[in-house]
Design a binder for these strands. Structure first.
Length: 296
DNA sequence: CCGATTACCTGCACGC
DNA sequence: TGCGTGCAGGTAATCG
């Protein structure tokens, strides 16, 4: 399911029932997701309070009230749903009603906080997601984060920074932008969208936009701008809902209605005055959607 | 070192 | 209706 905007949407959905709430119990329905869950996973989480629920790239990071941090990744098909205890409501939000355990409910957090009790259920059909417990002092150097690139939100991502990151890359722009060790959080959808908005071909070698001065500088700045812009807009829209993916409260995100390139093979390019047709090609094993006419 | 490909899983849409 | 095929928002391991 999720790229950065979807993970951020999930984080915001979970925050009211997880942050400053206590984990009363963890029900672990299998030993592994993509990787084995940590030793004594449920035991180590029981009775801990989550002081802060954050996000780094596509990872959720829950700070516990001891020296550990719960790190979670949703893979391709992971999702959370919140089921408040009967009679409990959270102002301004709709949640799932209590249900029987569904197929692929792998981990259930039984939470108690300011809105009473709620179950937070992690469901992941493909099990490409994973969870880990990391000592807080090791967080920056742990295997998940030690080689992680910059956040595409905020001020860290500039044209100058992109130029620096891409200067030695002979890989195509598409692959360079998907490389989480350079910029962390972009996935297939938002890379396609950012490149479309920037008028840059996904096939262009990344290093061809990094020369100092002139067109290259402009291209880098335009790309950095559009990355930040598309990510911000998608977060604002509650992410994209492909297939049956939902937000934690059961509602759909709606950014998918604003795709200009992704999943639009064969449709007319929507850029004003462009007569191109969106094409799909394969790059490093994944679909790329782009307009061959206005993306150069 | 780098870039490209494969592996890991299940579900679903599609064509026959 | 059923069956085979290919594809899906992820990262990690492996291959040249």
């Amino acid at each position: 399911m999720p790229e950065l905007p979807e993970v951020e949407t999930v984080r915001r959905g979970l925050q009211p029932v997880m942050e400053r709430s206590r984990i009363e119990k963890v029900v672990q329905n299998r030993q592994d997701l993509r990787f084995p869950l940590p030793e004594k996973f449920a035991e180590r989480l029981a009775d801990r309070e989550i002081s802060f629920l954050g996000r780094r790239a596509k990872y959720l990071v829950a700070d516990l009230d001891n020296e550990e941090v719960l790190v979670m990744h949703l893979g391709m098909s992971g999702s959370f749903r919140i089921e408040p205890e009967d009679g409990t409501t959270i102002p301004g939000m709709f949640y799932h009603s209590r249900s029987e355990t569904k197929a692929h409910d792998h981990v259930i957090f039984e939470m108690r906080g300011k809105f009473g009790r709620a179950r937070v259920v992690y469901n992941d059909p493909r099990r490409f997601g994973f969870m880990d417990l990391v000592a807080r002092e090791d967080l920056a150097t742990c295997r998940h984060f030690s080689k992680m690139g910059i956040e595409p939100t905020g001020n860290e991502l500039s044209g100058e920074k992109l130029a620096e990151l891409f200067d030695s890359k002979s890989a195509p722009l598409k692959a360079a932008l998907l490389d989480q060790t350079l910029v962390a959080g972009l996935g297939n959808i938002y890379v396609c969208e950012a490149l479309w908005r920037s008028g840059l071909s996904p096939k262009r070698k990344a290093s061809t936009i990094t020369r100092k001065g002139g067109k290259s500088t402009v291209r880098c700045e335009v790309l950095a701008l559009h990355i930040r812009e598309v990510i911000a807009e998608a977060i604002e829209a509650g992410g994209s809902s492909l297939r049956d993916h939902r937000q934690t409260n059961g509602e759909l995100g709606y950014f998918q209605h604003r795709f200009s390139a992704y999943d639009r093979e064969g449709t007319d390019c929507v850029k004003p005055d462009c007569s191109g047709v969106i094409r799909r090609i394969f790059q490093s094993g994944r679909s790329t959607f782009y307009c061959p006419k206005c993306q150069r």
